[in-house]
Simulated assay, not measured.
Amino acid sequence: MKLAALISGGKDSIFALYTMKKQGHEITHLLTMMPEREDSYMFHHPNVHLTAMQAELMNIPQITGKTKGEKEKELKDLQNLISKVKGKVDGVVTGALYSNYQKERIDTIAKKLGLKSEAPLWNIDLVKYWELLLENKFEIIITAVAAEGLDEKWLGRKIDKNAVKELIEISKKNKINIAGEGGEFETFVLDCPLFSKKIEIVEARKDWKGNSGVYLIECARTVPKQESIYK
């Protein structure tokens, strides 16, 4: 099938795209919503502008849409964005894991537009999911945290096996979703097999308020994978 992938820059949307490509489907477009508020119900906010860099590294055209991030109204904005690929693709791909709120709404929009809705990660075992991400050499950092047990030290942290173990332990104590789908944290993909180069952070800052914070990437560049200095 020819598919358009909804991407936010985070691990779930990029890995869903990667999974569909591995299954032999063609990803012809990337679709990204640009929320104007940080607490959007549906869409990531931190560093979403850098999806343009990811799109370039995957050599896939990107179409963006703006939304004020207001509940339900943003769904109309999403429908307007997806409608731009109607007639060009057979369906849309999302990185939904367990969120019925997200999946049901995208399914409804896709059905209205006569498109299939593909969620290849739906109901995946979350521990196995992290194993797959690391095995497939996804380089992921935390870009926002908003849950008990996740402090400022997590902002900008690269996820490795030790970090996953810590997330599992925090989950046992504080009942968080270890994939962050409940808003506990957000991520950004710096490298994966789909990228021709990797993204290197040149300048970033942490913005911490109360019990939550974001890691804002203010300057980034692409570098050949073997030359990156990012550790």
Rank of each mutant, 00 (worst) to 15 (best):
C219D: 15
N123P: 00
Y98Q: 08
E38L: 14
D90K: 03
E186W: 03
L30M: 14
E36I: 02
E166D: 09
S99P: 11
K231L: 12
T187D: 07
L50P: 08
D12T: 01
I199P: 09
I140P: 00
N100E: 10
V202K: 12
K11D: 01
K173V: 07
Q23R: 14
Y129I: 01
N100Y: 08
D160Y: 07
I176A: 05
A144Y: 08
G9T: 06
Y215N: 14
V214P: 09
E166G: 01
D191Q: 04
E169D: 13
A16L: 03
K88F: 09
R157D: 02
I168G: 03
N100L: 08
K137C: 08
G69W: 10
K206C: 12
M1N: 09
Q226P: 12
M42C: 07
P61L: 12
W130F: 04
K231I: 10
V145Q: 03
L75S: 05
I168L: 07
G10I: 04
K225L: 13
Y215A: 10
V93W: 00
D151N: 06
L134H: 06
Y41L: 09
C192F: 11
E139N: 06
K68E: 15
G213Q: 14
M53A: 14
L121N: 05
A55I: 14
I178P: 03
N47M: 13
L194R: 04
N174L: 01
I142V: 14
K137I: 06
M20R: 12
K21W: 05
L6C: 02
L31C: 05
D160Q: 02
E104K: 13
V89H: 01
K231P: 02
N59A: 15
L132Q: 14
K165N: 12
L57P: 11
T222G: 05
K112W: 10
K112H: 11
I109H: 06
A16E: 00
I109N: 09
E152M: 04
G95F: 01
Q79W: 02
G10L: 04
D77E: 05
F195L: 10
M34G: 07
L50Q: 13
T143K: 12
D12L: 03
T64L: 06
I217V: 14
V93Y: 00
V189M: 01
D191G: 07
N211P: 02
E135M: 08
P46G: 14
K173N: 09
Y215F: 15
P46Q: 13
W154F: 10
A146Q: 07
A52G: 15
V202R: 13
G24F: 08
D39N: 15
E184L: 05
N123A: 06
T143H: 09
H45V: 06
N177F: 01
S212F: 13
F185E: 03
E118S: 00
E139K: 13
T28A: 08
A16Y: 00
N177D: 11
D125R: 00
I60M: 08
K153G: 02
P61I: 13
G149Q: 04
G69S: 15
N100K: 07
N123Q: 12
H29K: 12
D90E: 12
E74C: 08
N80M: 11
